[in-house]
Amino acid sequence: MVFRYELEGGNFSKAGHASSEIKKTLKQLSVDPRIIKRIVVALYEAEVNVVAHAWKGEVLAEVEANQITLTLRDEGPGIPDIPLAMQEGYSTASPAVRQMGFGAGMGLPNMKKNVDELEIESRVGVGTNVRMVTRFSGE
């Protein structure tokens, strides 16, 4: 089953909507609460990334009986150096974004830590695709 949510650049107050909905769905599927927590953390970080950096984007969540695949596509500046962006503490967030309590440079590393698979594709000036997979079995 696929769920789709839209994201709007700069609208931080709406970031977290997709994570909240996905959390409710996973609870109904009786997924281990610890795994739900990790998925929600990763998705929330990813949502904030799109809102903080891109112009607009969407979340596609494909929920299956044994795993969830989260795809975030955005139209935005893209990431020129992905390995650099994966480093803890590296951030390109604007001072305004940092003032709101975001942009500590932990987004991507946190996402990687909390999912089973993370793939990033990006084209500078066009946008970024992030794909995250987590299996429910927990092994």
């Binding site: 609870k27 599927l29 929920v63």
Partner: peptide, 19 residues
């Protein structure tokens, strides 16, 4: 925990009900 479960059944069945 005593999670409020809206549907009964396996994950496949629950997903189908959500659909």
């Amino acid at each position: 925990p005593k999670t409020k479960l809206i549907y009964k059944g396996t994950r496949e069945e629950v997903l189908e009900k959500m659909e």
